[in-house]
Nucleic acid binder design. Structure first.
Length: 620
DNA sequence: GCAAGGTC
């Protein structure tokens, strides 16, 4: 029996081949750069000892596009919503390698990532294999299920394969077709529209006004925040507070009611308090408190933290992590999983870090008994473990500054995950004055634990509170009514934008950074520096596009908000779960976009006018 | 030339 195994990327085929063959493979080069074919023997249940070839693709090997007769300028853009769509082999060498290796295979086993896209890539691999070997059918094509590369897990996956999930394949094909139709039709419409007008200079920048189902909601978030900052009106508020002097220290007690926007109301309460010049300590509570160690690292968390700590763009952070992954220092950097598999040997990974001059000693202390199994979050993409260091590298031997920072961050994060929470004691003193309650807090950090290795988070003891006794009566001479005013939100930062995209289902762990980068190159938004911090604000063009689309009154749809993409995400899940079909979802969503397209085409002047007004307003 | 999704 000959079995052809195909993974989604070279690192997986290499690792799986090594495990299944007990490190005994023959390696052949292929025409495709980065891709190797590994030959070895393995005993598959039901098939006996087989000749195995293990290889991989590099993500998708086909793409969708329109026939040449529907290319730019050859048809009205609106036609693209129903034009035929072709599948095109986009990676000929990779496709060719699969076709060649499949010729004499009796069985095909697909080892792509266990997520939706992986299922589709598996289907693409099957098409490539069937192009030379039509004997490969539902009966002899298998799909192995694995979520990490730990040895027993991989062996288990090899011995218990399942069938390709046809529903998941359909869901992805639905997404691909929709993104293409909507993206291409609106991009051509907008580009043609703006080229005819002279409002915006199109020759600088990317020369295109693109529309994408992820690009525009992303732009929408930034414009929305910008407008909220610009239109912010500060509001005054009033509140009560009490200062108590004791042991040469002034303790500030904070009102448990917060603040109110009604001055008279607060004044009334204040006058009520003033009837008495004494307050009473009604409660003194000392209780242990913890500061939790971080969760295992996902891509989105990595990007948010690198933006916050190192002021690194999300794209730079992911690029650096990817380079470190390709050099074998970090695990796969695109993951949504924030829990380690219970079977994974984490201590072995800690052991590799003991040689470092800065965190080696700490790593050793974990191995000497301080090690804690990491906390687990509630996300699991079923395809990759959290990001962690797989091998040690001395950061001074890395030539790239960003890679140094990212590697150190991932290692420290990992060690922090494997540590004890920080422990402290919190003291809360409650003071009653009149009918109002006020509290003062004190924190004493007792054991820093993970904080010692994780400088990216601050948790420090406050000034020690003087002693207060429960029931004690205090003379009040520091009770006051104060005022303040609400302050405007700040402009959008990159970590905030990533978080917004993440919770709204805009893009994936692998693409969020690209979408942000894309709307920058399109000239829709710019990064600015203000008081040492970096913010993303919209350009006049970006604001005009969102404002224009918001002025057109679409039915049941907004082209600038995230709801439609989120709804599509739900519909795709319904296809996977068999509650609906690709055809139903396609026709429903296309119908929505067709209405929006017609209205956009009719209201082109509204779009242009919105841009014009914003440019004019900025001049004055 | 357009999208978003994989991966290098």
């Amino acid at each position: 029996m000959k079995i052809l195994c195909v993974a989604e990327k070279p690192s997986i085929s290499k690792a799986v081949a090594k495990t299944l063959s007990a490190d005994n493979t023959r390696t052949r080069k292929t025409k495709a750069k980065y891709i190797m074919n590994y030959d070895f023997k393995f005993n598959f249940p039901g098939y006996g000892l087989c000749d195995v070839t293990m290889t991989s693709v590099l993500g998708h090997i086909t793409n969708v596009d329109f026939p040449p007769s529907f290319s730019w300028g050859k048809c009205p853009p609106g036609r693209l919503l129903e034009a035929p769509v072709l599948e095109i082999v986009s990676q000929k060498d990779v496709y060719g390698n699969i076709a060649q290796e499949a010729r004499n295979a009796n069985i095909l086993m697909i080892w792509t990532d266990c997520d939706r896209e992986g299922e589709f890539i598996g289907w693409e691999i099957l098409q490539a294999a069937r192009s030379t070997n039509t004997n490969l059918t539902a009966d002899n094509v298998w799909r192995s299920q694995f979520s990490h590369l730990e040895r027993t897990h991989v062996l288990q996956a090899a011995k218990n394969p399942v069938k390709l999930d046809v529903n998941a394949v359909k869901a992805v094909s639905c997404r691909m077709e929709l993104d293409l139709r909507v993206g291409a039709s609106f991009t051509r419409l907008l580009t043609d529209l703006f080229r005819k007008s002279t409002v915006v200079q199109l020759d600088k920048g990317s020369n295109l006004i693109s529309y994408g189902t992820c690009q525009f909601p992303t732009l929408g978030f930034i414009v929305d925040r910008y407008n909220r900052v610009k239109n912010f009106v500060s509001e005054p508020f009033w509140f009560l507070c009490v200062d108590v002097k004791r042991d040469n220290q002034t303790v500030q007690f904070t009102w448990t009611e917060g603040h109110f926007f009604d001055r008279l109301y607060v004044l009334l309460l204040y006058q009520n308090c003033l009837k008495s010049d004494q307050g009473q300590v009604t409660n003194v509570i000392r209780k242990p408190t913890s500061n939790w160690r971080p969760l295992p690292l996902t891509t989105v968390e990595l990007q948010k933290d690198c933006a916050r700590i190192f002021k690194m763009s999300s794209k730079d952070a992911l690029d650096a992590a990817e380079k470190l992954y390709n050099k074998g220092f970090l695990s796969y950097p695109r993951t949504e999983t924030d829990q380690f598999p219970a079977t994974m040997d984490l201590k072995e990974l800690v052991q590799k870090q003991t040689q470092d001059s800065r965190w080696g000693q700490y790593s050793q202390s974990l191995l000497d008994g301080q090690f804690k199994q990491p906390r687990g979050g509630n996300r699991d993409d079923k395809a990759h473990p959290p990001i962690h260091p797989v091998n040690y590298v001395n950061t001074s031997s890395l030539d790239n500054d960003k890679q140094k920072k990212v590697y150190e961050y991932v290692v420290r994060r990992f060690l922090a995950c494997c540590s004890e929470d920080a422990k402290g004691e919190q003291t809360t003193v409650t003071l009653q004055w009149g009918d109002e309650n006020f509290t003062a807090n004190g924190l004493t950090v007792i054991a820093r634990n993970y904080l010692d290795i994780y400088p990216y988070r601050k948790w420090e003891s406050s000034k020690q509170l003087p002693k207060f006794d429960q029931g004690e009566v205090i003379k009040i001479n520091g009770g006051r009514m104060k005022d303040g005013k609400t302050s405007p939100p700040s402009h959008m930062t990159e970590p905030e934008l990533i978080a917004l995209m993440d919770v709204n289902g805009i893009g994936t762990d692998a693409t969020i950074a690209e979408h942000i980068h894309k709307i920058i190159t399109r000239g829709y938004v710019v990064k600015i520096k203000q008081r040492g911090s970096e913010f993303i604000i919209p350009s006049e063009l970006g604001m005009g596009l969102i404002e224009g689309f918001d002025r057109i009154e679409f039915e049941n749809i907004s082209l600038s908000k995230p709801f439609l993409r989120k709804r599509l995400e739900n519909s795709l899940q319904d296809i996977v779960d068999g509650r609906t079909t690709k055809e139903v979802v396609l026709s429903e969503v296309i119908q929505l976009y067709r209405q929006a397209f017609v209205q956009s085409a009719q209201n082109g002047t509204t779009l242009i006018q919105a841009c014009k007004e914003i440019i004019e307003a900025n001049k004055s």
